[in-house]
Amino acid sequence: MPPVRPSVPRLVLLATGTLLLTGCTGAPGADGDGRTLVLSLNQTESHPSYIALTAFGDRLADRTDGRWDVEVYANETLGAQQEVVQLVGDGAVDMAVASGTQLENLNADFRTLNLPTVFDDIEHQLDVINDDAIVGELFTSLEESTTLTVLGGLTQGARNVYTAEGPVERPEDLNGKKIRVQESDIHIDMIEAMGGSATPMAYGEVYTALQSGVLDGAENNEISYLSQKHNEVAEHMALTEHLVGLDYVVMNTDVLEGMSPEDRAVFEEEWVTTSEQHAELWTTETIAAIEAAEESGTVFTAVDEAAFDAALAPVVDKYLETDDARKLYDDVREAAQQ
């Protein structure tokens, strides 16, 4: 019989502590028998992350004869990223996709992989995050303190600056422009270094802010730019590619360690496949998004890459505060040369 899929209401009750049906017997799955793993995602069912992670569950169920499966709950059904990461550590949710800014709050060394210009492109990024010799110690660094294991990452692709007026070719073209950023010290410093006036703002408010002139621009990848219809209110995209973004997939450590050695080997193999397939989907969707944006009137502008790289270099140095962070950065950059 296949594993029973838990309902969302039951998960919410478990998370709030009002119905503790499984917590008294140790970590779910600790006996190695397997079950359906619950994974929280903040994207829609049409997003490459949902498609890739759902396929991950299907392959896992097939290779383990139904012992293990993954059920993806999209659209922040189980809560926003910050609270869901806590739920994963507590064992109320098994897995979650979390942005780099969430993990920076738990271990500042995660900042290294979220710095501008650290990755050359998606291929370089995948080589790094799937190389245990480079990221193994970082990805297990939260296990003792928070019961979280980082399985790996899902690319967010290259991020660019887009504006209501343009074009933007050099950092000085952003002078005085209010550019939306995530609420992250790195992102704020990044936009300020690139010449803009960093304006932290909730993602859902950006369209209206661009439309009304509260914002002059924002930064994101082409897929999000189009899916959020920001092309309607900001028709100029400067191909700064200042950051190759990364989401992390975190898992409750006890659940992972509760797998039998054979099932865990399958699980980890299929995870690497998932990361790679997601990148392929991302590339295909990015091409389609660019074509659709151009048809809608978006003007894509090549930039002075050397000028932007020079402007961002002090931001990189600022956040390499520890020997571990510096070594990780050097290892990542060395991988780009191989």
Rank of each mutant, 00 (worst) to 15 (best):
E83A: 14
T112H: 04
G66N: 06
G176R: 01
V250W: 00
T273H: 08
T77F: 00
E45A: 13
G91Q: 04
N75E: 15
A302Q: 11
S145R: 13
D121H: 12
R111E: 13
S46Q: 15
Y248V: 01
A193V: 12
N231P: 03
A310V: 05
S99F: 13
G26N: 11
Q82W: 05
G217E: 03
I223L: 15
R264I: 07
V38F: 09
S7V: 13
E257R: 06
R63T: 13
R111D: 13
S227K: 11
L60K: 10
L126Q: 04
V244K: 02
V168C: 09
L14E: 15
M194C: 03
G32M: 07
L39A: 00
N252W: 00
T54L: 05
L246D: 05
L281E: 02
D127C: 01
V4H: 13
T36E: 14
D127E: 14
T44M: 12
G152H: 02
P2A: 11
E276G: 04
A15V: 03
R333E: 07
T273A: 06
E169S: 05
Q86L: 07
T273I: 03
C24G: 15
E262K: 05
V255T: 11
Y248W: 03
L154P: 13
V206G: 01
P261N: 08
D120E: 08
V150F: 02
R10F: 14
I134E: 08
T240D: 02
A310Y: 10
G89P: 00
G166K: 06
E270P: 04
L60D: 05
T44Y: 13
Y203S: 14
E83L: 14
N221Y: 12
D263Q: 00
Y319K: 08
S7E: 15
D304A: 01
S227F: 09
V206Q: 07
A61C: 10
I179N: 06
H230N: 05
E192Q: 14
E285R: 01
Y225M: 03
V299N: 09
V299G: 02
P261R: 10
M194A: 14
E222T: 15
V161R: 06
T301E: 04
L154H: 05
C24T: 14
P28I: 12
E270H: 06
A133N: 08
G29D: 07
D304T: 02
A52Y: 09
A288G: 11
D247L: 04
I223R: 10
N220L: 12
T301Q: 01
P2I: 03
D120C: 00
A98Y: 01
M95N: 07
Y73F: 15
R10T: 14
P28K: 02
D247N: 14
E172A: 09
N220P: 04
S260N: 01
P261M: 06
L256G: 00
V168F: 07
V84D: 00
R5I: 15
E321W: 04
D132T: 15
D62R: 15
I188L: 11
M259P: 01
V250D: 00
T117C: 07
K229G: 05
L53R: 10
S40A: 15
T298V: 15
V85L: 11
G89Q: 03
G196Q: 07
S260P: 01
A325Y: 00
D247M: 06
T240C: 02
I223G: 11
A302F: 05
Y248R: 03
T146I: 04
T240H: 03
T140V: 08
Y162E: 00
F110D: 10
G217F: 06
K318M: 03
E104M: 09
A313C: 08
